[in-house]
Design a protein around this nucleic acid. Sequence first.
RNA 1: GUGAUUGUAGCUCAGCUGGUUAGAGCGCCGGAUUGUGGUUCCGGAGGUCGCGGGUUCGAACCCCGUCUUUCACCCCA
Length: 447
Amino acid sequence: MKPSIAKGTRDFSAAEVQKRQHIMNVLREAFELRGFDPIETPSFENLDTLTGKYGEEGDRLIFKILRSGDFTSKIDDGAWAGKDPKTLGAKVADKALRYDLTVPFARYVVQHQNEIAFPFKRYQMQPVWRADRPQKGRFREFYQCDADVVGSDSLWQEVELVHLYDAAFTKLGLPTTIKINNRKILAGMAEILGIKDQFISFTVAIDKLDKVGPQGVLDEMTNQGISSEAVFRFGQWLEAGMTLDALKEVLAESEEGQLGLEELEFILTNSQSGLQSSKVEFDFTLARGLNYYTGTIFEVAAEGVAIGSVGGGGRYADLTSIFGLKNTSGVGISFGLDRIYLCLEELGLFPTEVSARPAILFANFGEAEAVSAYQWVTKLVGQGVRAELYPDAAKLKKQFEFADKKGIVHMAMVGTNEMGAEAIPVKNLSTGEQEVMSLEQIVALLG
RNA sequence: GUGAUUGUAGCUCAGCUGGUUAGAGCGCCGGAUUGUGGUUCCGGAGGUCGCGGGUUCGAACCCCGUCUUUCACCCCA
């Protein structure tokens, strides 16, 4: 059998894991500094916990887990004959891999509401799964690193999240643009245009502006069945330019639209000071397909790398009510670990010390010598030095090559002459220099 | 889900309009070299040509299916 792994999944080498941990360490520190506490939730949830939260497209991409046991005999002939994936799917699968961290978090909050102090700030770094077709920067298993606050309507939460994005990406050295919009502004536009019931088609079309241009967006709207008057009027708006001031006039008659503009201005004004390296921009074309967003929406683009967004998020005022907890608004952001990794790699931004750690390998010259060498190893490990003995008395050439390959720079030689000695020769493999050193000297060098 | 694209040794790739025994470089193993590697030289192992079917006297090459890779759309981190 030929070894292979499932489509859209990856193995990670030691060097890759170390770099991924570097990113997670930066994020963890940024989260904890601002009062977020860690939680974890299961890899899979009950199917009905996840379905219906992400929109039609999202539901399609949920990985479902086949029931175990003799489940087929319990399915009636009518369901088989109907061949409808939705009704049949629910009978065949009752569990699913999590699609994101936000919905399981909402479930968690409702389920543990009596143990939680609100407003509740949590962070979570775990893999999620999507049955998507893989592409560059798009996988079927990938990590999300989320920070969310639940139980406060305050816009200061949004301001804090903008600063959290900025701080984390600054620390990673990745220049970014944080794009902000508000669903209420989009809803206000739809209201004025008289197409409230076509809101989703409307936002999907707007979202494409930077890809297909103004005329492309208008064509898309027409294709989606939006009335020609609405398309024409929206075309006039586009032509005039969608600045904040222009929107104020356009949305004058929409209460919801006005509210969205006020929220947006508050966040933009209050997040400007304290920004380190990121740019914060209003972008009215930002829509986001996830259905549960109700107010502010975020998306983060990395500068100088052609890849999808490296982060996203927004406010969900009503997500917990699906699980039975009303009037509990939440807002959160997500960092896409795998895409951040690709960006840092492409721009050469990983610090070198991430992969190179000091260590020493003891050459093995034979049975008796190994006993003596192993005593050195034990002492060094006890002092916190990464040390190991080559297990076999192989040719020195082979032992040197092993150290090279593993990235170990120092090699100790405990041969017949050095057995029981107080100091032993230590060779630096990259310079070729060799020096006789005591235990203390080795600890000082590598500890 | 729609439309393209890719697959030959551990890795990167050659392989002509279908023609005998499928090649190279790197890597790997052994030797020159039994306590000091990286150079050099010599030798060696390693392939169901992604998988299944078809066309043909004959298929790595043509056709069909399938899986996989990469990409665009959709959507998204």
